[in-house]
Design a binder for these strands. Sequence first.
DNA 1: AGGATAAGTGGAGTCACTCTAATTATCAAG
DNA 2: CTTGATAATTAGAGTGACTCCACTTATCCT
Lengths: 208, 208
Amino acid sequence: MPKTITPFGQSLRERKKLKTREAIQREATRLFQKQGYEATTIEQIAAAVEISPSTFFNYFPSKEDVVLYDAYDPMVATLFESRPSDEPLSVSVHNVLEMLTDTLERDREIILARSKLILETPDLRARLWSEIERAQVFFGAMLAQRTGGDANDFEFRVVAIALVAAMMEAASEWVRLEGRVKMGDLMKRALDSISADSMLDAFSSRRK
Amino acid sequence: MPKTITPFGQSLRERKKLKTREAIQREATRLFQKQGYEATTIEQIAAAVEISPSTFFNYFPSKEDVVLYDAYDPMVATLFESRPSDEPLSVSVHNVLEMLTDTLERDREIILARSKLILETPDLRARLWSEIERAQVFFGAMLAQRTGGDANDFEFRVVAIALVAAMMEAASEWVRLEGRVKMGDLMKRALDSISADSMLDAFSSRRK
DNA sequence: AGGATAAGTGGAGTCACTCTAATTATCAAG
DNA sequence: CTTGATAATTAGAGTGACTCCACTTATCCT
């Protein structure tokens, strides 16, 4: 048993591990972009990183996870949770996106490339949706917290999934537009579309 | 070149093909339920149907498709398209579900079993979402038709995906409740939740 | 009965992924 | 700085989905 708890990433072991993890993601992404996701084999990635194929699976449970794994995910979650719980969720969404504007701008190229890869590759796209189910649970909890209800209620689940799906479409649109517009604005438009009148309009057509 | 166009499923060939297709689905589903989706191999299915594994892939492009393939899909689409285009979409949804009540009641057990399998199996669940993207396009077109807009507009895509996601959640709930309630009612509740006030409430919490 | 056409099949191969047992690197402590 | 524990890396064998292809067999049309 170690005498002192070694801070994360401080020991040689931890640093090496992190470096390897990043190297795998970097090389994998590079190869995916160069020759396509499906045309790239684990063997090729392993060769590029100079590790054995076995080691690859020590770091990522599947080929898909190399792309899907998002380091910013927990950060975004934290940002949301730090928002005052009496703030309307739509406003929170916008605010969180505002806080992320700089990061989004700085890493635009990388994020865009990665997102495109996901959107264009059926396998990855399918897997994305299971990430979305995690988001559904998260936002369901947020909604419940804000209204004092039970997150497991059918209504919350419905609103949460619709919300997340809409945000997903906004993100796709952002990618389609090469990140030329602010993601926060797209999210706002998306949320506006499904809430309030416009949704009803679309629903009930010329009746109103 | 044949002199007359042979009606679908009339010739020996066609009838046999249909029978085999059904046999594969039947046996596959049976095995999946008995021993789980992943634990069942193509070889086992082929053996049960008394065909070769090669033949399996002549009928279904992948193991997933045996479960996902839905014969009722085009029927539902037709029902929607036969609805008057000045009918609000939410009403159309309800009406279509009403028309399907009998079928849903009659085939309840089979549909339930199949749906459970899909919802419980991560691989199938992920694939379901790509079906949903097809539904998004379909409903996007419906919305556009009803409002006279362009189905490719961002707003339509957003509303369509939110709509479909909500319906999806309603369907899941139906499965969870073992089909004890009418699917149409769940859909109605789901659509009510995302449209109009309740959504706004959830969004803006105690402010209103 | 005939050849055209489609369905079924066997076999070889690829690739993602699993499991296991052995090897090597790092670590904590004396 | 050596040692025993622990974690990381690896090779290798195996499984199962899926592809490709050449070949046989069944159905069809005339």
